[in-house]
Write a protein that binds this DNA or RNA. Structure first.
Length: 290
DNA sequence: AGGCATGTTCTTG
DNA sequence: CAAGAACATGCCT
């Protein structure tokens, strides 16, 4: 967490690099069918290939080529196929009370009490800050009890992104606090720091059904994917796949609660609150890390 | 390609 | 409260 030194320069949109990375991701995910080469991409963005390569690799953790390979719809389908339903059998016990050990992030979580939920965040102080991430500016929100929100914005979009989040808990008090949130951002996007000894504490604020759906998402291991109807079945309501989709879409802690690992039954990436391009990027990023 | 059942949540009267 | 609409779905012509 010695990120404080670089914090200042990181907050101010150092736009150029991120914008480049964003464009590359977008271009690749849009045109992966053409399998564009590094040179093609560089030419489209009017940048020297070697520099583009370096910038992208530094931010995304893998080369443009590796990223391209990772991102194909085939890949998404393979994710579904390779696991012939272990999810249902592997179902892990999670007590609502005690912290449980969950998925690859070793996230511990607790849900808000019904009273707290009904208050729509009243009496809650939420600290927030924007930090750079491989998927754009990440909005990190935390309460005393742990990470409560994670959202993404493109450059210039920060305000809309913040509003999207704050209106979910309209009665909470919001304090901008880069220092309190940078440690979260730092850890979340560095898989080297996902350790069982130091679980990441998260707080799920939502209705009963939503929290159950999000808990189900937490059980999907990295590099795997499930369908919306898988989740519905796991909740004991096999016909509720659409309701599941709606709940997944309101996931307040994107990425950490891996809603990007939920796909349509055909393997198609059906939707993503922060943009389908980001969903593909996340799946590709995880494939690169695995 | 288009219609329809489905469960949850939000909005409206 | 009741009723209706909206949804990151899925199944059936």
């Amino acid at each position: 967490m010695n990120m404080t030194a670089t914090l200042k320069s990181d907050i101010t949109p150092q736009g150029a690099d991120y914008e480049t990375v964003r464009q590359v991701i977008e271009l690749i995910t849009e045109d992966y069918r053409d399998q564009p080469s590094l040179e093609d991409i560089a030419a489209r963005l009017k940048q020297p290939p070697t520099q583009l390569q370096k910038t992208f690799t530094r931010w995304a953790g893998l080369s443009p080529k590796a990223f391209l390979q990772a991102v194909t719809l085939d890949h998404a389908k393979r994710l579904l196929r390779q696991e012939s339903m272990p999810l249902l059998e592997t179902s892990i016990e999670i007590g609502l009370s005690g912290p449980g050990r969950l998925h690859d992030l070793f996230v511990t979580h607790e849900a808000m009490s019904p009273g707290e939920w009904k208050a729509r965040g009243a009496g809650l102080t939420i600290r927030y800050g924007f930090h750079p991430s491989p998927f754009g500016q990440a909005l990190v929100m935390a309460t005393e009890r742990g990470l409560a929100g994670l959202a993404f914005a493109d450059d210039g979009n920060e305000q809309a992104c913040l509003e999207d989040m704050t209106c979910r808990w309209p009665n909470a008090a919001y304090v901008r606090d880069q220092e309190a949130t940078v440690a979260y951002a730092d850890r979340i996007f560095d898989p080297g720091r996902w350790r069982p000894e130091e679980p990441l504490r998260i707080v799920l604020i939502g209705s009963d059904f939503q929290v159950r759906v999000w808990q189900a998402l937490l059980r999907i291991p990295m590099g795997k994917a499930v369908t919306y109807s898988d989740i519905a079945g796991e909740l004991g309501q096999p016909t509720a796949s659409r309701a599941v989709g709606a709940a997944v879409g309101r996931n307040p802690i994107s990425f950490v609660v891996p809603c990007h690992r939920a796909l349509g039954k055909s393997g198609a990436l059906t939707g993503y609150h922060w943009g389908l391009t980001r969903k593909r990027a996340m799946l590709g990023w995880e494939a690169g890390k695995a």
